[in-house]
Write a protein that binds this DNA or RNA. Structure first.
Lengths: 237, 237
DNA sequence: TTAGTCTACTTGATTAGACAACTAGATCTG
DNA sequence: CAGATCTAGTTGTCTAATCAAGTAGACTAA
């Protein structure tokens, strides 16, 4: 707040002015030195303002090219319910869905996973990291754990079909449902940001839920991270 | 990435080192000048690192006092469903709930609000800004719109009772429910951050939904912002 | 004792300057 | 003409220095 008549930091007012410029509909901002001259402040003060605007998702700076206004496309509405299926959800919106396997490992169930999947701690699991894309735009990354004994070939089945539903069907599970879903939000992790092709300071909606077969035996626990800029969740009651 | 042997920015490595220090369990970080001396960099480089850590929610700087490690308390689980009621949700958890009126204005329905509330555009609405607190910890701020003609005294009723349910009961609405809830996430706004007593770069879960009376007439549209650090939403299917 | 004041310390803001790393287009070269 | 090279322009990083503003404790005066 210092060095300023009315006690409001200069960079905040610079940010406000740039925000107004953005409203005018321009696509590329003037370069930092130009902005600094125009507002009569140091280039660093402009950079502080731009950092704030970038954190709001309004602008994006690219080294050597310039600073560009971010025009957010409309967010895709993703229904969450007992029968949430990524492929169905996305194709209903006339978009082209795709699931891609990023990585697969075998691991032992820790306390939480054992509880969620009704297994003993230490039970073998397949862990799949997957990326979900609609119209070539990454929407989410997910981690899914399956009991390895019941679903020995889940990794290959998913890699082949790109669909959890089909991979489970290959193991004789025709239908499944979820009872509860927990939803949180946090800053995107570094690895997820790379897969989602989003800024490092992006925000993800995190859903955690278990899927159950028709006999109410848990068959999968998953933790999905949806990029909040691109997706909004819809709860039907 | 400049001025550095291996192409990784100094402030990133400083941030990593501080992150490790935090893991050690200390509560207050050394002062910026001390950190700068210890890592052999300028104080501004330390500040750049601290800004990154603050954005991750790991530390919080207070002018004149120092920089402190943030220990996140467990998040409160907030069920979202057809009969979501803040007071019930919170008191079920043996916490002390409280709703406080921040502001109330009269405004005309815009296109979206008119559609959500089945009113003509321009219809008069009461708009209430409310703050929701559990055990003196702010959890969420909400904006609620009510048709002014049907609920003329909603502002006074809410101010008195601190509860939407009771305020509606005073207007003869015994029960209400919601059909859908949309959930998104974004950076907290400046005014909200002040009310929620959270860092300016906090993240909020945003829920939007309409409530309907037993005859399925919409009586309220609301947009709540839950601080993601303190709350997690639970969907029951 | 109490209330006010002073002071050292700490983070916040701003300016100045320098160089690194990257981009895109112009220019040169075979 | 194709490809390599150069160059001006742009953002990223880092150092240095200074003052503002808030905090907390010590000190002082009533």
């Amino acid at each position: 707040m210092s060095q300023s008549a009315d006690g409001i930091a200069r960079w905040r007012r610079v940010a406000d002015e740039i925000r107004e410029m953005i409203g005018g509909g321009l696509e590329k901002l003037p370069v930092e030195t130009e902005l600094a001259a125009r507002f009569g402040v140091n280039r660093h003060t402009v950079r502080r303002a731009l950092a704030a605007l970038a954190a709001e998702g309004l602008v994006r700076s690219e080294r050597g090219r310039g600073t560009f206004v971010e025009r957010l496309p409309e967010r895709l509405v993703y229904p969450v319910g007992a029968r949430t299926r990524f492929t169905e959800n996305v194709s209903r919106l006339a978009r082209q869905p795709a699931g891609r396997l990023i990585a697969a490992t075998r691991e032992a169930a820790d306390g939480q996973l054992a509880r969620e999947l009704s297994l003993r701690p230490g039970a073998p699991l397949h862990r799949l990291e997957t990326l979900h894309v609609a119209d070539a735009i990454p929407l989410s990354v997910g981690t899914a754990w399956f009991p390895a004994e019941r679903f020995p070939n889940i990794v290959a089945a998913y890699a082949e079909t790109g669909s959890v539903t089909k991979a489970l069907a290959a193991h004789g599970v025709d239908d499944y449902r979820r009872h509860q879903t927990r939803i949180g939000a946090e800053r995107v992790g570094r690895a997820d940001a790379a897969h989602l092709a989003c800024p490092a300071d992006g925000i993800v909606l995190v859903t955690e839920s278990a899927n159950y077969d028709p006999k109410d035996v848990p068959i999968q626990f998953s933790r999905s991270r949806f990029l909040a800029d691109r997706v909004e969740l819809l709860i039907d009651s």
